[in-house]
Amino acid sequence: QTQEFDNEEEARKAEKELRKENRRVTVTQENGRWRVTWD
């Protein structure tokens, strides 16, 4: 699953929550947008 964010702060917040659920999370930056991908 993927979700896009406008800034790193929001993306990192989402990453932190997903990691609490023991998910594999990848955060990438593309064209000024932050993308959080998880399984």
Rank of each mutant, 00 (worst) to 15 (best):
L18N: 03
R24V: 15
E4Q: 08
E8A: 03
V27C: 04
V27S: 02
N31T: 02
N7K: 06
D39W: 14
E8H: 04
N31D: 12
E15A: 15
Q29D: 07
K16E: 10
R23N: 15
E9K: 10
V27H: 01
E9D: 11
T2S: 14
L18W: 11
Q3Y: 15
T37S: 12
D6Q: 08
E30L: 09
R35W: 12
G32P: 02
T37L: 06
V25N: 00
E4S: 09
Q29F: 15
K13V: 07
K13M: 11
D6C: 09
E10G: 05
T26E: 14
R24I: 14
G32S: 05
K13L: 13
A14L: 15
A11R: 00
E9C: 09
V25I: 06
F5A: 01
R35C: 04
R19K: 13
Q1H: 13
D6L: 07
L18F: 10
A14R: 14
Q29T: 11
E15M: 06
T2G: 07
R33F: 11
E9I: 12
T26C: 12
R24K: 07
E17M: 12
W34K: 00
R19F: 09
N22D: 05
A14F: 15
K13A: 10
N7C: 13
T37E: 11
R33W: 06
N7E: 07
R24H: 15
E4C: 09
E15D: 02
T2R: 08
W38F: 06
K13N: 13
Q1A: 12
K16D: 09
R12N: 03
E15S: 06
Q29Y: 15
R33L: 11
Q1D: 09
Q29S: 10
E15C: 05
D6V: 07
K16L: 13
E30P: 02
V27L: 05
D39Y: 09
E17I: 12
Q3P: 03
E10L: 10
V27N: 01
E4M: 13
Q3N: 05
E30R: 09
N7L: 08
T26G: 04
N31I: 03
R12C: 05
R19E: 10
T2M: 15
R12Y: 07
E21R: 11
E15I: 09
E10H: 04
Q1I: 12
E21I: 08
N22H: 06
K20L: 14
A14M: 12
N31K: 08
D39Q: 09
T26N: 10
N7G: 06
Q1Y: 07
V36Q: 01
E21K: 13
Q1N: 14
T2L: 06
L18I: 04
N31V: 03
K20R: 14
W38D: 03
T37R: 08
L18M: 10
A11D: 00
N31R: 04
W34F: 06
D39H: 09
T2Y: 14
T37H: 04
K20P: 03
R35K: 12
E8I: 05
E9M: 12
V27P: 01
T2P: 03
K13Q: 09
R35G: 02
Q3V: 10
N31W: 05
K16M: 15
G32D: 08
E17T: 08
G32E: 05
E17P: 02
T37G: 04
A11G: 01
R33I: 14
V36M: 02
D39G: 11
K16R: 10
A14V: 15
T26F: 11
R23Y: 15
D39N: 11
L18G: 04
F5I: 01
N31G: 15
W38N: 02
T28Y: 07
E4Y: 15
A14I: 12
V36A: 02
L18R: 07
R33Q: 09
R19H: 03
E30S: 08
E15R: 02
N31Q: 05
Q29W: 12
R33P: 01
E17R: 11
N7T: 15
N22A: 08
Q1R: 10
V25C: 07
F5D: 00
R19G: 07
E15Y: 09
E30I: 12
R33E: 03
D39A: 10
T2Q: 09
F5M: 02
F5P: 01
Q1W: 15
T28L: 09
K16I: 11
V27D: 00
E8V: 03
A14Y: 10
T28M: 08
R24D: 13
W34Y: 03
R33T: 08
W34S: 00
N22G: 15
K16P: 01
N22M: 09
V27Q: 00
W38L: 05
R24A: 13
W34G: 00
R24L: 11
A14G: 03
K13E: 11
G32V: 01
N7H: 08
Q1M: 12
R23S: 12
T2A: 07
T37Y: 06
K16F: 13
R35I: 15
T28Q: 06
V27W: 01
A14H: 13
E30Y: 11
R24N: 15
K20Q: 13
V27I: 09
N22V: 03
E9T: 10
W38P: 03
V27T: 03
Q3I: 15
R23P: 12
K20D: 11
G32L: 05
E21S: 12
R23L: 15
E4F: 15
E21L: 14
G32R: 03
A14D: 01
G32Y: 03
E4D: 10
W34T: 00
R33H: 03
